[in-house]
Deep mutational scan, measured.
Amino acid sequence: HDVTIHAGDKTIHVHGASEEFLRIIEQAKRDGIHEEELLRLIEELVK
């Protein structure tokens, strides 16, 4: 999957995102996670 995530003034493109990655991001959004926290989460996941 190619994913584009908008968080605040940043746009992150993730190529080859796994289903698990997508679920984590969707869950985080539903939980109302702060955008900066979401960015950190994404950066950890894509290392």
Rank of each mutant, 00 (worst) to 15 (best):
K10E: 05
V14W: 11
H34T: 15
I42E: 00
R23F: 09
L45E: 02
L22K: 06
T4H: 09
Q27K: 12
T11N: 07
L41G: 00
H6P: 06
S18F: 05
L45F: 15
L39T: 04
A28F: 14
E37V: 11
K29L: 15
H13Q: 09
A28T: 01
E44C: 04
I25W: 09
A7V: 15
L41N: 00
E20R: 05
T11D: 07
S18M: 04
I5F: 03
E20N: 06
I12M: 06
H1I: 15
I25M: 06
K29F: 14
E26D: 09
G16E: 06
E36G: 11
L39D: 01
D2Q: 10
H1V: 15
L39P: 00
V3N: 04
L39S: 04
A28Q: 02
H1E: 08
A17P: 06
Q27I: 08
I42F: 15
I33E: 02
E19W: 12
H6R: 07
H6Y: 04
L39V: 11
A28H: 04
E36I: 13
G8Q: 04
D2N: 14
L39G: 02
Q27V: 06
I24T: 08
E44Q: 12
T4V: 15
V3H: 05
E36P: 07
L39A: 07
E19R: 10
D9M: 06
R23N: 07
L22C: 09
K47Q: 13
I5D: 02
H15V: 12
A28D: 00
L22A: 06
K10Q: 09
E37Q: 12
F21P: 00
S18R: 04
I25E: 00
S18V: 03
G16W: 10
H34E: 14
A17S: 04
I42T: 01
F21E: 02
E26P: 00
E20L: 09
I25Y: 10
H15C: 07
V3F: 12
R23E: 07
E36F: 15
L38C: 01
A17D: 02
D9E: 10
E37N: 08
I5H: 04
E35I: 14
F21V: 09
K29C: 09
H6C: 09
A28V: 05
I12Q: 02
G8I: 02
V14G: 01
K29N: 07
G32V: 02
E20A: 10
L41V: 03
I24V: 09
E43S: 10
D31F: 12
H1S: 11
E35G: 15
A17Y: 06
I33S: 03
H13N: 08
K29R: 14
G32W: 02
G16S: 07
D31G: 08
K47Y: 12
Q27G: 04
G16C: 02
R23Y: 07
H13Y: 09
A7Q: 06
A17I: 14
V14E: 01
E19F: 12
R23A: 11
I25C: 03
I42Y: 04
Q27H: 05
G8S: 05
I25H: 00
S18I: 05
K47W: 11
F21S: 03
I25N: 00
E19D: 14
L41F: 06
S18G: 07
H34Y: 09
E36Y: 15
H6M: 10
G8D: 05
E26V: 06
A28E: 00
Q27A: 12
G16A: 08
H1K: 13
K47L: 14
G32D: 05
V14T: 02
D9K: 06
L38T: 01
E35V: 14
I42P: 00
R23G: 04
L39Y: 14
I5R: 01
K29I: 15
G16V: 07
T4F: 04
L22M: 13
H34Q: 14
Q27E: 10
E43C: 13
I5L: 06
K47C: 14
I42A: 03
T4I: 15
L39H: 03
L22Q: 06
E19M: 12
E26T: 08
E37C: 10
L22S: 04
R30Y: 09
I5Y: 01
D31T: 08
H13F: 08
I24N: 02
T11E: 10
H15D: 05
E43F: 15
E20P: 01
G8C: 04
F21A: 06
K29V: 15
K10D: 03
A28C: 07
L22E: 04
K47T: 13
V3G: 03
I24W: 10
I24Y: 05
I42Q: 00
L38G: 00
R30D: 04
V46P: 01
G8E: 03
A17L: 15
R40C: 03
E36N: 12
R30K: 08
L38E: 00
D31H: 08
R40P: 00
E44Y: 14
R30N: 09
E43M: 15
H34P: 14
I42D: 00
Q27S: 08
K10A: 07
E19V: 12
A28P: 00
A17R: 01
D31A: 13
L41M: 10
R40L: 10
V14S: 01
D31I: 07
G32I: 02
G16K: 03
I12S: 02
Q27P: 00
D31R: 06
I12R: 01
R40Y: 06
R30E: 10
L45A: 05
L45G: 02
R23T: 06
H13C: 05
A7T: 10
R40W: 08
G8A: 06
T11M: 10
L22H: 04
I42K: 00
A28M: 13
L38W: 06
V14P: 01
V3K: 03
D2P: 12
A7P: 03
V14N: 01
Q27M: 11
T11P: 04
D2G: 13
I12T: 04
T11C: 02
A28S: 06
S18N: 09
I33F: 10
I12L: 08
G8Y: 03
E43A: 14
A7R: 02
T4D: 07
G16M: 07
H34F: 11
R30Q: 11
V46E: 05
I42M: 05
H1A: 11
D2Y: 15
A28N: 01
I12N: 02
S18C: 02
H15I: 14
H13P: 03
Q27T: 08
D31N: 12
V3C: 06
R40F: 07
K10I: 13
K10Y: 10
D2A: 12
R23P: 01
V14M: 07
E43R: 15
E43Q: 13
I5P: 02
L38M: 07
K29Y: 13
Q27F: 05
L45H: 08
E43L: 15
E19Q: 12
H6S: 13
